[in-house]
């Protein structure tokens, strides 16, 4: 309501002839310029630095830094973690947002708060929680040791910590979207004879797909880039439990700037790649319209 009023007011002043239109165009350029300046200072400059430093000693040095087996292991670990975490959190996010948007139940607001918890808690604390639970002196530590299962300082711990940190992203995107779109289409599908699964895959999922894609991308970006929580549970074992962000830190601390920034540039490229994929998916989607 307010938004339509506002846009109506903007349109009104934009089409009005005379001084008002000059002033409004000035205002417009001012805001566009300000935003661009901000982007340049905070986004483009660091990005440029990353690639500049990585290519400082030439392309050969840049490529050579990936030949390091530890770097390859870090890359592999990061991709495995993302491959496990993102699908699981997508399923969880869909289920949680469905439950919240479609049903009324006791403790619903508490449930929503719980979903937000990882966003509010410091990632380091999130990591510590798992150490306290599964570490050697944790609640389940002795039992895990007896059964020869390692969680902390191993892949399961890294996956758990990453999942904990990234699980709000999909749900947070979908809850408001589902609430806003309502239940009418689903109800229509049901009266037309569709079952639960068919309604979900043919009606609900297509309806929320853009929100879902966006949530998955955010989730993926965070899963690959997570430092704090993973740092606590991983143990920084080179070639074994180092993810890319951790590996970058190690290389940097060893004054291997080219190596550190090369891996950083790869991480950045992965992020850019996901954004490109998202844009492509949206494009094809819109072309169908």
């Amino acid at each position: 309501m307010a938004a339509t009023q506002q846009s109506a007011a903007v349109e009104d002043s934009a089409t009005r002839p005379g001084g008002a239109s000059i002033r409004s165009s000035l205002t417009r350029w001012f805001f566009i310029g300000l935003s661009l300046l901000f982007l340049a200072a905070l986004l483009l400059a660091p990005l440029a630095t990353v690639f500049a430093t990585a290519l400082d000693k030439g392309v050969r040095a840049y490529v050579r830094s990936f030949a390091d087996p530890d770097t390859a292991a870090a890359l592999r670990l990061t991709l495995i973690t993302a491959l496990v975490v993102v699908p699981l959190n997508t399923v969880f996010g869909l289920a949680a947002s469905w439950a919240i948007a479609k049903f009324e139940f006791h403790g619903k607001s508490f449930f929503i708060t719980l979903i937000d918890l990882p966003l509010a808690v410091s990632p380091v604390i999130s990591g510590l929680i798992f150490v306290l639970l599964f570490g050697l002196h944790g609640w389940f530590g002795t039992w895990l040791q007896d059964h020869d299962i390692s969680v902390i300082f191993a892949l399961p711990g890294i996956i758990l910590a990453t999942m904990f940190v990234t699980f709000p992203y999909v749900a947070r995107e979908l809850i408001p979207l589902m609430q806003q779109l309502g239940n009418d289409e689903e109800e229509a599908a049901i009266t037309l004879g569709a079952g639960g699964w068919m309604t979900f895959f043919r009606v609900t999922l297509p309806k929320v797909r853009w929100g879902l894609v966006y949530g998955v991308i955010l989730c993926n970006a965070r899963a690959m880039g997570e430092f704090g929580a993973v740092s606590v549970v991983s143990g920084h074992i080179r070639g074994l439990t180092n993810t890319m962000p951790l590996h970058i830190e190690i290389l940097y601390n060893e004054y291997n700037f080219v190596g550190a920034f090369a891996v950083a540039s790869l991480l950045t490229l992965l992020a850019v790649l996901t954004l490109v994929v998202k844009t492509l998916v949206e494009r094809t989607g819109y072309r169908r319209r």
Binding site: D184, E185, E187, A188, A189, I190, T191, G193, A194, G195, R202, V203, P206, K207
Partner: peptide, 20 residues
């Protein structure tokens, strides 16, 4: 009997067409 098996036709105020 569930809505699915009642076999009625229902038209909503805001159409509820499958928009995609």
């Amino acid at each position: 009997v569930s809505a699915r098996e009642r076999g009625v036709g229902l038209v909503f105020q805001n159409y509820a067409l499958f928009r995609h």
